Simulated scan of single mutants.
Amino acid sequence: MTYPNTDETVRLIKSLVEIPSPSGNTNEVITFVENFLKEYRVETKRNHKGGLIASLPGQNEQNHRMLTAHVDTLGAMVKEIKPSGRLKLDLIGGFKFNSIEGEYCEIATSSGKKYRGTILMHQTSVHVYKDADKAERNQDNMEVRIDEKVLNADDVKALGIEVGDFVSFDPRVEYTSSGFIKSRHLDDKASVAILLQLIKQIVLEKIQLPYTTHFLISNNEEIGYGGNSNIPTQTVEYLAVDMGAIGDGQSTDEYTVSICVKDASGPYHLGLRNKLVKLANDNGIAYKLDIYPYYGSDASAAIRSGHDIIHGLVGPGIDSSHAFERTHRDSIENTAKLLYHYVQSEMME
């Protein structure tokens, strides 16, 4: 038995996180995924929302499976061009301003031009602002300093920058000799890379799947509705592959696959959870069961939208979610192993 190559998965994660893709501006990264799958002659189609669906035939064409991971990330939009030539931001996704303070960023204009900048407190200079450490990190105080010669709002507009332009954050990806992957946007590009590697292995090794299986690479998960549509009516089991959240009171860590039993939407399907646990135990896969109190997934979005499916959620454990994220290759590997066995397993009776 061979599993997807973890080193290749890590390289793919690095490629994915380096492509800017805040929710609402994901065409470039979807094209990257599309081209990756095209190399292995996998049938794909885009939905009207801009997500990508890859389908692999199975022995049973009456009952289908669907797995999903999302390529959209946290980001921002230009809210206002200030008289000073700095930019006020409006956030995309659920995170705090303090998590992006000091971050390098890219402003993408509607005409296709891109400009560099840094996200800073207005009151950053301690030589000027006595109470710089006490100022609140919020929309009024945080701004983008553009790396262009701009002295006022008119100078900024002359560059082609307008309200509504997307702002993406530099990932600063690093793979350490100890096996840690540090980067923004591991949520959820780590899981996307795992699914792509799984599809590649299924195709190259001509693995016969028991059920026709669809892989949705969604592009609106961070704003709540990436995986709530385009689910074939034959779908019985729907598994979201997303990050496991780490923190006080959590059992998830950076070395195992996290199996979610409940999040803010409520419990996940008990039968599917028990099946995933059995697959892990039977195949020597390290896992943790956990509850994420402030979390929602594409699977929970699908349930909310009224789909009659069995839903579940698994993924690698990610430290410092929605900020300076980190995981370990062991967690990537254990997640990949569980998914490898899951797609070849029989459905629940």
Rank of each mutant, 00 (worst) to 15 (best):
S183F: 14
G164A: 07
T212A: 02
D170E: 13
I194R: 00
Q208M: 10
V163S: 02
I217C: 09
V192A: 10
E162K: 14
I207N: 00
K182M: 15
V236Y: 07
S168H: 01
Q234T: 14
G226S: 03
D188G: 07
E174T: 11
H214I: 06
V163E: 14
G164T: 12
S229L: 08
I194W: 04
Y175P: 00
F166V: 09
N219M: 06
F215R: 08
V236F: 05
S177A: 12
L209N: 10
G179N: 09
A190S: 15
T176P: 06
H185K: 09
P210S: 02
T235E: 03
P171Y: 05
R172F: 14
I199H: 02
V163P: 01
G224W: 02
I181S: 00
K189V: 13
T212R: 07
K206E: 15
H185V: 06
N230V: 05
L196E: 07
L195N: 12
G164H: 12
H214D: 15
I161Y: 08
K200C: 04
G164F: 13
D187T: 08
K200G: 03
K182P: 02
P232I: 14
H214Y: 15
V163Y: 03
N219W: 04
V167E: 13
G179W: 13
S218H: 03
G226Q: 04
